[in-house]
């Protein structure tokens, strides 16, 4: 596991990601005292009050645990650069990862017909807007997927 941010230039969420054996994954923490896992990475365990945590790979596949559609344009600090008129609704969900940790994330679809609790999801990067200088803004997201590795 290697938190190789150089692979992901101009990505504000690069520090949340890790290059694991199965590709791009989410970087979290694991408590050395009680084993509780966290996303994003943290230096304190709210379960056992410990403060000795090590980086861990949260993975890149999971199942949709809950979802909604963001139908109105959020106020600042949302920075997609869209106008109210051009705003495109986006899906938001929690994805349950193999460890049981649920990760909040944008979803690649905002169509309720394409979303169902329990469906397999895979990590990806999406463009969600652009900066004033025209550079794309990217973040992590989850996309519905057919195949899923192992039994989650």
């Amino acid at each position: 596991m290697n938190n190789n941010t150089s692979l992901l230039p101009h990505l504000p969420v690069a520090h949340l990601l890790t290059q694991g054996t199965s590709g791009l994954g989410l970087l979290g923490s694991k408590c050395s005292q009680c084993g509780e896992m966290y996303f994003p990475a943290t230096d304190s365990c709210t379960a056992c009050c410990g403060s000795d945590l090590a980086p861990c790979d949260i993975g890149n596949q999971g199942r949709l645990w809950s979802w909604t559609v963001q139908a109105f344009m959020p106020k600042s600090p949302y920075n997609s650069g869209e106008t109210e008129e051009a705003f495109q609704p986006y899906g938001v969900g929690y994805v349950q990862m193999p460890s049981g940790v649920k990760v909040e994330s944008r979803l690649t679809t905002a169509d309720p017909a394409e979303l169902a609790i329990g469906m397999p999801m895979a990590l990806c990067l999406v463009r969600y807007g652009q900066r004033v200088d025209g550079q794309p803004l990217q973040t992590f997201a989850f996309a519905p997927t057919i195949e899923i590795e192992g039994d989650l």
């Binding site: 504000p12 809950s66 909604t68 938001v92 609790i117 969600y128």
Partner: peptide, 26 residues
């Protein structure tokens, strides 16, 4: 929380209530 959480459109109370409700109904 870090800036990315608000900048990428995840920091809304209405979103939270919806996600919690959706899961609860299910």
């Amino acid at each position: 929380l870090e800036d990315w959480y608000g900048e990428t459109g995840l920091m809304l109370t209405t979103q939270f209530f919806a996600l919690k409700t959706q899961r609860y109904l299910h």
